[in-house]
């Protein structure tokens, strides 16, 4: 038995597939791909799947991964070929690797935000976002695992941020803390950045670009 990490993109309307639904989707795709899977030993044997970092509903990604356990002879290229054939548009499997870092090692994630200002002139919006980021104070409320609300300053969890303006679209690339501790939902940042403006944060296009460990090395 060996573990393999399967990398995939989740784009377009596939961003509306929730994490739980994705779990089921991947389990079925693995069955359709007829991979020699290792099954859990229990009353209801099931293939083992472990996702590195859940993606919020409505956010796209080009760097998702899921670890599975293989029992039997099959090379990584064949795994990729078969799982790709069992997928749907929007979920594109692109690489199969040996897991180097365990999912709890994840420390940061890089996101791209694209805001579409209605008036076509994004200068004002870009300036407003940039000044909020520069202020160092982005108060927000986050639900804790216990269900209570926690007050935090999002600025403390942003390690890198760059705003830009291109063809009327305001873009922001930001590295946020991620993983088991202090995971920051990019939708929360979008909401705080757009608070008080006329833009609906839910309409922003957000994409997860990269995962890093706590030392800012690429997650592999």
């Amino acid at each position: 038995m060996r573990s393999v990490r399967i990398w995939f993109k989740k784009t377009g309307s596939a961003k509306y597939i929730s994490h739980l639904d994705l779990n089921r989707f991947v389990a079925r795709a693995l069955r359709r791909a007829q991979l020699p899977l290792w099954y859990t030993e229990g009353f209801n044997p099931r293939p083992h799947t472990a996702f590195s970092l859940p993606l919020p509903l409505g956010v796209e990604s080009v760097c998702e991964c899921v670890d599975i356990k293989i029992e039997g002879e099959i090379d990584d290229g064949e795994i990729l070929r078969r799982i790709s054939g069992a997928s749907v548009p929007g979920i594109e499997f692109y690489s199969v690797t040996e897991p180097v870092l365990e999912p709890p090692k994840i420390g940061f994630a890089k996101y791209e935000f694209i805001f579409f200002p209605d008036d076509g002139d994004g200068t004002a919006l870009k300036d407003s976002i940039a000044s909020r980021l520069a202020s160092g104070s982005l108060p927000a409320e986050k639900k804790t695992k216990k269900g209570t609300m926690r007050q935090l300053n999002l600025a403390e969890f942003i390690s890198e941020a760059r705003t830009d303006l291109c063809d009327g679209e305001v873009t922001l690339e930001a590295v946020l803390t991620a993983g088991n501790e202090n995971n920051i939902n990019p939708l929360l940042l979008a909401r705080v950045l757009l608070e008080g403006t006329s833009y609906d944060y839910r309409l922003a296009k957000i994409t997860r670009l990269k995962l890093y460990d706590a030392q800012h090395n690429e997650y592999r």
Partner: peptide, 24 residues
């Protein structure tokens, strides 16, 4: 294909995957 008007509704409703199509 899919109307931009529909796309604009999806981010603001519950369980949008019910309205996207594209299932296996």
């Amino acid at each position: 294909m899919r109307d931009a008007k529909i796309k604009a509704l999806l981010p603001v409703v519950n369980k949008p995957a019910r309205y996207t199509g594209g299932e296996l």
